[in-house]
Design a protein around this nucleic acid. Structure first.
Length: 470
RNA sequence: GGCACCAUAGCCAAGUGGUAAGGCAGAGGUCUGCAAAACCUCUAUUCUCCGGUUCAAAUCCGGAUGGUGCCUCCA
């Protein structure tokens, strides 16, 4: 499988350091609020990567942190008048609710910053010993001048960054370089703090992720992923801290997803142009949100609007109704002979789909192309089903492939299967069927309307009528 | 100002050297008592523009234009 590595800006063959086992770290949410669809993109995309690697037969250790102590958490907790830990705990619960809805697999481990203080302190100590960190007025800082490779990931030249930073930030008391970033912030009045060898305080944002990755996955991991906006400074800083401390490569493949835009502008909390997944889920099924995200390649920016989501609904329905219909026709086609030309055509289409699907997934997780391959199979299967010359077994084979391959994308096209049709509706439908047999179309249509009024619809097929939720 | 990324049909979106996938929307047709669903056909001689390389360019190179992002918390 090829993956675009942000570090080298090239597609590279993806191989694990330890044969058969990938170690992945994904930057998780800062738990001060519900997450929005833009935040959801990396969760969905890298969950899909994980599912694909599992499907390929790899073992995957997948770590996603919760940043549960941070300026935003503190500010929000103060505004709500609750302890920060209480807010964080609540938001972690809310995270799980939406993430589960989006069918994002639970991580192998969810380390929290506040539970990783020891590891953070140890890491800072190592940096101090090696001369990469120093004390300033308000805390401990990382000295970027002590790490010559600084800027490599983001492609920034140090002097450009420094020039920009000096203008904006001016000189911070005791900082050696305006770009030096905080490792440990000394406590301020009214803020939570933890004891450390250097005084009470709390960790900086960047050191958290380094410490949690090193502690839980080891000094060199395979994949570290997140949104493109984390490239600088967050990931750049993580590399500097981690590699300065260990002397080893921190991450082998860096992956960054593109933004979700509104009117071609980045969706973000600070711009206020965001939709939380929670709000969207009230209007669209979670599966539609996931399907929508996966219809675009993960590195491309994607625009977001109700119109596009509506189109995704229609699009997805084409898949689910096909999967649904195939089961129905297959049940009615048990005694069809196998080996017809139509059947062989379908079997070939299944093989072609699986091949095209995997080729797309192998090419830097091209889910858009992978979905296109699945649509091709939908058409072939629908056509095959309508000929009446294909065995139920072959139809189910097509259906199983659709279900299997969509499952790797975290989607279940069989989820909307017809179950729980009320007896009353079935009775009405049967009555309509008899009226239709008797060519009493007025009565048949009246009954169909009544069924529709109750939220179901009737489809007549060569194999008989079907009742579906409308 | 510095550094990146993007530009493909009415809309969304794949495609990185061999003659434009897929979805939505639209038109016509088949099937149906009528519907619905499904299927078939049609809908970009062309990929923002201008040069260049090549037998061959949406794809590579140079330039222009437009848009976005990062450089400050941000997925």
């Amino acid at each position: 499988m090829q993956i675009f590595n942000s570090l080298t800006r090239r597609k590279e063959e993806l191989t694990p350091l330890e044969p058969g086992h990938f170690r992945i770290y994904v930057c998780g949410p800062t738990v001060y609020d519900l997450f929005h669809i833009g935040n959801a993109r990396p969760f969905i995309v890298f969950d899909t990567l994980r599912r694909y690697l599992l499907w390929l037969g790899y073992q995957v250790t997948y770590v996603q942190n919760f940043t549960d102590i941070d300026d935003k958490v503190i500010t929000r907790a103060q505004a709500e008048g609750v302890p920060f830990a209480q807010l964080a705990e609540r938001m972690i619960g809310e995270y799980y609710r939406d993430a589960d809805g989006l069918n994002i697999m639970r991580a192998s481990l969810y380390p929290r910053a506040t539970e990783s203080i020891d590891a953070i302190i140890q890491l800072i100590s190592r940096l101090l010993e090696k001369g990469h960190a120093y004390e300033a007025e308000d805390g401990l800082y990382f000295s970027i001048d002590s790490f010559p490779a600084y800027g490599r990931l983001s492609g920034h030249k140090l002097e450009d960054l420094v020039a920009g930073a000096s203008e904006r930030l001016g000189d911070t008391a005791g900082k050696r370089n305006p770009l030096d970033f905080a490792l440990w912030k000394y406590k301020k009045e009214g803020e939570p703090f933890w004891p450390s060898p250097w005084g009470d305080g709390r960790p900086g944002w960047h050191i958290e992720c380094s410490a949690m990755s090193l502690e839980n996955l080891g000094e060199t991991i395979d994949i570290h992923a997140g949104g493109v906006d984390l490239t600088f400074p967050h990931h750049e800083n993580e590399i500097a801290q981690s590699e300065a401390a260990t002397g080893k490569p921190f991450v082998r493949y860096w992956m960054h997803n593109g933004f979700v835009n509104i009117d071609f502008e980045k969706m973000s909390k600070s711009k206020g142009n965001f939709f939380t997944v929670r709000d969207l889920a009230a209007r669209y099924p979670y599966s539609i949100l996931r399907f929508f995200i996966l219809q675009a390649h993960y590195r491309m920016p994607v625009n977001f609007s109700d119109e596009l989501l509506d189109a995704a609904v229609t699009s997805w329905k084409r898949i689910t109704s096909s999967v649904d219909h195939l089961a129905f026709v297959a049940a009615a086609s048990q005694d069809q002979p196998a080996g017809t030309a139509e059947e062989n055509g379908l079997l070939e289409a299944i093989a072609a789909c699986r091949q095209a699907w995997q080729k797309a997934m192998d090419d830097d997780l091209n889910t858009a192309d992978a979905i296109a391959a699945l649509f091709d199979l939908v058409r072939a299967a629908n056509t095959a089903a309508s000929t009446g010359r294909v065995s139920g077994q072959a139809l189910l084979q097509a259906r199983d492939s659709l279900i299997e391959l969509f499952a790797v994308l975290g989607l279940d096209p069989a989820a909307s299967a017809e179950d729980g049709i009320p007896e009353e509706i079935t009775r009405l439908a049967e009555e309509r069927g008899r009226a239709k047999e008797a060519r009493d179309f007025a009565k048949a249509d009246a009954l169909r309307e009544e069924i529709q009024a109750r939220g179901y619809k009737i489809e007549d097929t060569p194999q008989g009528f079907r009742i579906l939720p409308s």
